[in-house]
Simulated assay, not measured.
Amino acid sequence: MKRNDLLFMIEQAVKAPSGHNTQPWLFRLLENEDKVELYPNADKELKVVDTDRRELFISLGCAVENLSLAASSKGYSLDVSITEDGVITVQFTFSDSVKEHALFKQIGERQTNRSVYNGSVLKESLIYSLQEIGKVDNANVYMWLNGSPEFCVIADYVLRGNEIQMKSKEFKKELSDWIRYNRSHTLQTRDGLSYEAFGAPDFPRWMSELIMKSFLNPFMQNKGDKKKIQSSSHFILFTTRNDSVVDWINLGRTLERFLLELTSRGIAYAFLNQPCEVKPLSVGMARSLLLEKEYPAILIRIGYGKKMPYSLRKPIDDVLI
């Protein structure tokens, strides 16, 4: 297997989403065996907001799905195995019968769009087609229209999540550590939450820090999220049957396929994971939605909005071991 093919696939894999754009993955190339091993990067853990590392492992699953789609563009199929502690081994097999997947070209187009959307509602036929996207075992996807009782319940849990998180000094410290306050800061790190993703101007860093940190309180967070929620068409909740590393990684593959499908249809999305991240709220939301035997894992809102600037990625050499 050509090393350039492996590097190309990893370049696509790291375009996957991750919490705070931490990019929490490490890759080991086993060229002679046509394999890649994928490991969680302990240095990129979000110990406050993602205490059980659920979102980290979901991100690794998203990266694996990108790897799979990129492999198809080079004529490879793959076999994935996952250990209980989250080490992922990907075995590649070349075949003339493997054709490029239709979603491959969406990898570079996908973005998390945190803006206020235009309020348009997705057509029912489009929602039905999204529900047909393949799911892995032990994962489910639920969609609720803006204005429905379930949508209103979830919106309330999001705001309650803000109240809890934005009163936590530890949460705000961790979040602040991953905000990139201007262009030079963003180019220096090539990770984290860029000022552009929030629609902020390119001010001197000291000024941006003062302004952005003034927004890190329950009132301002809820004020902004209310507008964003009201402008959205649907909430989509991804759940797992088990709270396990293997299920989280497999859910990540479903999530990435779903996000790329949204991208191909011109649909914007953004994460609102607050009620999944605060354990009491997660349990309460599942009960309120009659999903008591499932674990809420990822919550997104969808709709139509203008393109936003893209988040940068680390150089490939930084993720190879």
Score class of each variant (00 low, 15 high):
Ser18Asp: 02
Gly19Leu: 14
Gly19Glu: 09
His20Ile: 08
His20Tyr: 14
His20Trp: 12
Asn21Gln: 03
Asn21Tyr: 04
Asn21Met: 08
Thr22Arg: 10
Gln23Trp: 01
Gln23Glu: 07
Gln23His: 05
Pro24Cys: 03
Trp25Ala: 01
Trp25Lys: 00
Trp25His: 01
Leu26Gly: 05
Leu26Thr: 12
Leu26Cys: 08
Leu26Met: 07
Phe27Ile: 09
Phe27Lys: 06
Phe27Met: 01
Arg28Phe: 06
Arg28His: 13
Leu29Met: 13
Leu29His: 04
Leu29Ser: 05
Leu30Gly: 12
Leu30His: 14
Leu30Ala: 13
Glu31His: 03
Asn32Trp: 04
Asn32Thr: 10
Asn32Phe: 07
Asn32His: 11
Glu33Arg: 14
Glu33Cys: 02
Glu33Trp: 04
Glu33Ile: 00
Asp34Thr: 03
Asp34Cys: 05
Asp34Glu: 12
Asp34Arg: 08
Asp34Ala: 14
Lys35Gln: 15
Lys35Glu: 15
Lys35Ser: 09
Lys35Phe: 06
Lys35Trp: 05
Lys35Cys: 13
Lys35Pro: 00
Lys35Arg: 15
Val36Thr: 03
Val36Asn: 06
Val36Ile: 15
Glu37Tyr: 12
Leu38Cys: 10
Leu38Ile: 15
Leu38Gly: 01
Tyr39Ile: 09
Tyr39Asn: 08
Pro40Ala: 11
Pro40Thr: 06
Pro40Gly: 02
Pro40Ile: 04
Asn41Asp: 15
Ala42Gln: 11
Ala42Arg: 11
Ala42Pro: 00
Ala42Gly: 02
Asp43Val: 03
Asp43Glu: 12
Asp43Leu: 09
Asp43Met: 08
Lys44Thr: 04
Glu45Thr: 10
Glu45Arg: 13
Leu46Met: 10
Leu46Ser: 01
Lys47Cys: 07
Lys47Glu: 09
Lys47Asp: 09
Lys47Thr: 11
Val48Arg: 02
Val48Thr: 13
Val48Asp: 02
Val48Ala: 02
Val48Pro: 02
Val49Glu: 09
Val49Asn: 11
Val49Tyr: 04
Val49Gln: 11
Asp50Leu: 08
Thr51Pro: 00
Thr51Met: 10
Thr51Ser: 15
Thr51Gln: 14
Thr51Gly: 11
Thr51Ala: 14
Thr51Arg: 15
Asp52Asn: 11
Asp52Ala: 12
Asp52Met: 11
Asp52Phe: 06
Arg53Asp: 11
Arg53Val: 02
Arg53Tyr: 13
Arg54Thr: 02
Arg54Tyr: 03
Arg54Cys: 08
Arg54Asn: 05
Arg54Ile: 03
Glu55Ala: 13
Glu55Leu: 14
Glu55Trp: 07
Glu55Cys: 09
Leu56Asp: 01
